[in-house]
Amino acid sequence: MSTQRTFILLAGLFALTAVILGAFGAHALQSRLESADTQATWDTAVNYQMWHALALLTLANYTLSGRTFKVALYCLSLGIPLFSGSLYWLALDGPRWLGPITPLGGLLFIIGWASVTLAAFKMRNE
């Protein structure tokens, strides 16, 4: 499977699960997400997952290549489950040791976006 196809597939799966988890949080989990804090945590996870899935889909369709661009794709792909996944678990009263995983996902987002910027900076004007 090509790298491009892999990241388009991942983007689709991340976007699909963001929609499902958003609906699940709004309807089926209303009693579990009683406090405004837990609902906000769940909503943050869904929002970051969807925005980064859409970004991944967009980036996967670019014809850019190179190590910096691949770093961006991998960082965004790994950042989604670490950041959003840990927030979903925390909102559902998951183990507190997941708390430090959230910033790790955020760091991967930062590295991913910095890599996108660097890859674009390295592009040659044609």
Rank of each mutant, 00 (worst) to 15 (best):
M1D: 04
M1N: 02
M1I: 03
S2I: 05
S2L: 01
S2M: 08
T3V: 11
T3D: 15
Q4S: 14
T6K: 14
T6D: 05
I8Q: 15
L9N: 08
L10D: 05
L10I: 13
A11V: 08
G12L: 13
L13T: 06
F14E: 02
F14R: 10
A15T: 06
L16F: 15
A18V: 03
A18H: 05
V19C: 08
V19Q: 02
V19L: 10
L21C: 09
L21N: 10
G22E: 07
G22A: 11
G22W: 03
G22V: 10
A23I: 09
F24A: 04
F24M: 11
A26M: 10
A26Y: 11
H27R: 05
H27V: 08
A28D: 10
A28V: 04
L29P: 01
Q30S: 15
Q30V: 15
R32W: 11
R32C: 07
E34D: 14
E34I: 08
E34R: 13
S35W: 09
S35R: 08
A36F: 06
D37C: 01
D37L: 12
T38I: 07
Q39S: 11
Q39G: 02
Q39P: 01
A40N: 14
A45E: 02
V46Q: 13
Q49I: 05
Q49D: 05
M50V: 03
W51M: 06
A53Y: 09
L54M: 05
L54G: 04
L54Q: 02
L56Y: 09
A60W: 03
Y62V: 00
L64D: 08
L64I: 11
G66V: 12
F69T: 02
F69L: 00
K70P: 01
V71L: 11
A72V: 08
L73V: 03
C75H: 04
S77E: 13
L78V: 13
G79H: 05
P81F: 06
L82P: 13
S84A: 15
S84D: 02
G85C: 06
G85D: 06
L87P: 09
L87T: 10
Y88K: 09
W89C: 13
W89P: 00
W89M: 14
L90Y: 12
A91I: 05
L92N: 07
G94Y: 09
P95I: 11
P95L: 10
P95C: 01
W97N: 06
L98A: 10
I101R: 02
I101Q: 00
P103V: 12
P103K: 14
G105E: 13
G106K: 08
L108P: 08
L108Y: 15
F109A: 03
I110M: 15
I110W: 08
I111G: 04
I111Y: 07
I111S: 04
I111P: 02
G112L: 07
G112Q: 15
W113A: 00
A114C: 12
A114R: 01
V116P: 07
V116Y: 04
T117C: 14
T117G: 12
L118Y: 08
A119R: 01
F121T: 07
F121Q: 11
K122F: 03
K122A: 04
K122D: 13
K122I: 09
K122E: 15
N125W: 12
